[in-house]
């Protein structure tokens, strides 16, 4: 039993990442009608926001302490971080320790700027072009963004630790008589993604802005005829989708050390998730994200193993089967991308 629950939990963190990226992809697709192959790059930029902030916060200067000598007899060089010297060792230490959660705030302006620049600067001109052109131009953009990151940060993965308080393992299910040991940060990631997904849904459901956006998704022309500037709202939605993808990356950094091609790796799977969930359906994207994440984790379970390596192809297999039996995906709407 506890093993069973552990498999579900194992699937949740990857599933959360899939769900967050797929949510953003679906938002962009539903509002702007654009297939964005550069969305994985936004995820990667988010992860590198974490890296950058933790580097900034860990910046230190070297002073020479003449009173102490090292083992060669030279004056000892003492490294001290700016944070600790400005805020005192305790507060400063806490700030550097919590750099990843702080990067959530740090990433917001960056992702908004990147998102708006992308939409206004490039994607705007591709609304009326065929989908093939949209795919290709965003694919080119993804390559460029990826190379920029590689140029600045190098090709090796960069370890970015979670705060010490959250990097331990959590003992779960004690009251149910189950022994489940699970990394705490992954639980944090799961609840964080739930909160973000809930936030996006609430924003669309309960605010006037969200109402207009939903109306625009349903019938863009009529909303425009009512004198509402729907384009500007869609740009805002693009920025929101960028922030969501960025946050998914920020919080993913401690789970998997960020490298420059992580965006491309996640992108393919996220597209599969979107298609399985049903193009244009937000709940479908989220549900499919978690579902496929959990499925992947079960396929790698020893006891469940039908044959070796099933976990690496299960998502694709399931996607192919679903697309053939339910062409619109799990929760796809009629009339979306059916030409």
């Amino acid at each position: 039993m506890s093993e069973f629950i552990l498999q579900i939990l194992n699937g949740l963190d990857k599933g959360s990442a899939y769900a967050l990226i797929a949510l953003g992809l679906t938002l962009i697709f539903g509002t702007l009608g654009v297939v964005n192959f550069a969305h994985g790059a936004l995820f990667m930029i988010g992860a590198f926001c974490s890296v950058t902030l933790s580097r900034i916060l860990n910046a230190s200067y070297v002073t020479i302490d003449p009173t102490q000598k090292d083992f060669l007899g030279n004056p000892l060089k003492v490294k001290s971080s700016y944070m600790e010297s400005w805020f005192g060792p305790e507060v400063g230490g806490a700030i550097t320790d919590w750099s990843v959660p702080l990067a959530i705030l740090f990433s917001i302006p960056i992702m908004i700027v990147v998102g708006i620049a992308m939409e206004r600067g490039l994607i705007k001109h591709f609304y009326k072009r065929p989908h093939a052109d949209q795919i290709l131009v965003t694919f080119g953009l993804a390559i460029i963004l990826q190379e920029l990151v590689r140029g600045f940060y190098g090709a090796n993965p960069i370890q970015t630790p979670a705060p010490e308080a959250l990097s331990s393992v959590a003992q779960l299910g004690g009251s149910l008589g189950l022994e489940i040991v699970y990394p705490a940060w992954r639980m944090v990631y799961f609840f964080f993604s739930l909160a973000v997904i809930g936030g996006v849904f609430a924003f669309l459901r309960f605010t006037t802005f969200g109402m207009v956006v939903r109306a625009g998704m349903a019938d863009r022309e009529t909303v425009g005829l009512m004198g509402i500037n729907i384009d500007r709202r869609f740009t805002v939605m693009f920025a929101i989708a960028a922030v969501v993808a960025g946050w998914a990356g920020v919080m993913y950094a401690p789970i998997n050390a960020p490298n420059y091609h992580m965006g491309m790796d996640f992108l393919v799977l996220s597209f599969v998730v979107v298609v399985v969930g049903g193009m244009g359906s937000l709940p479908g994207a989220v549900a499919a994200g978690f579902l496929l994440g959990i499925l992947e984790s079960f396929a790698s379970w020893e006891r469940f193993k039908i044959f070796d390596g099933l976990d690496q192809i299960i998502i694709y297999l399931v996607a192919i089967i679903i697309l053939l039996t339910r062409p619109r995906g799990l929760m796809g709407k009629k009339g979306v991308m059916e030409d």
Binding site: H131, I135, V272, M279, D308, Y316
Partner: peptide
């Protein structure tokens, strides 16, 4: 359309995984 692109993409990635781990 886009579904075709993603289906072929999924198949190709599946073939890649199969080849990479010699499934």
């Amino acid at each position: 359309g886009i579904y075709f692109s993603i289906l072929t993409l999924a198949f190709a990635q599946m073939m890649y995984s199969i080849a990479y781990s010699d499934l």
